[in-house]
């Protein structure tokens, strides 16, 4: 029982849970009824699942140069995935594809028409 075995076991556990989260996310994307709910299911593998898989890979490779790239992949994913999700969510809301029966509170639709301020880059 040396430390490489321990690292391998940790790697296996991380990868298994990451793959499980990815599978659950796929089930959610298929099953959930409307687009915005689906997007909530979709943010999971990109945040926790992917981070777990990358951590597992780091424990398995045990190579400092490779860990640099893995950290970079994780950081890029953390920075970019909220932006992408926000863009998709906003586009769907503005295109009027939101199922209003599913919202118990909707504080945006009331003030959307009078929002005339320019958005995007200042």
């Amino acid at each position: 029982m040396n430390w490489t075995t321990v690292a391998d076991v940790i790697a296996a556990a991380c990868m298994l849970s990451g793959a499980t989260l990815a599978l659950i996310a796929a089930i959610g994307v298929l099953r959930l009824p409307d687009l915005l709910s689906r997007m909530h299911a979709a943010t999971k593998p990109q945040v926790l699942g992917l981070l777990l898989v990358l951590t597992g890979l780091g424990f398995r490779l045990r190579d400092p140069e490779a860990i640099g790239v893995l950290v970079l992949v994780g950081l890029f994913q953390l920075f970019t995935s909220p932006v992408a999700n926000h863009m998709v969510g906003r586009a769907s809301f503005r295109a009027g594809q939101v199922d209003h029966d599913r919202l118990i509170v909707d504080e945006l639709s009331d003030c959307l028409p009078q929002m005339e301020e320019p958005r995007g880059a200042p």
Partner: peptide, 30 residues
């Protein structure tokens, strides 16, 4: 809608990344 497909594609990319990571872990290549 198009946006549903976009979300699915996004998750598919994440699954692809996971799959490549699995391959790298299996053969221990970088």
């Amino acid at each position: 809608t198009m946006l549903d497909r976009t979300v699915a594609l996004d998750v598919l990319t994440a699954v692809g990344i996971c799959a490549l990571a699995l391959e790298a872990a299996l053969h221990r290549n970088t």
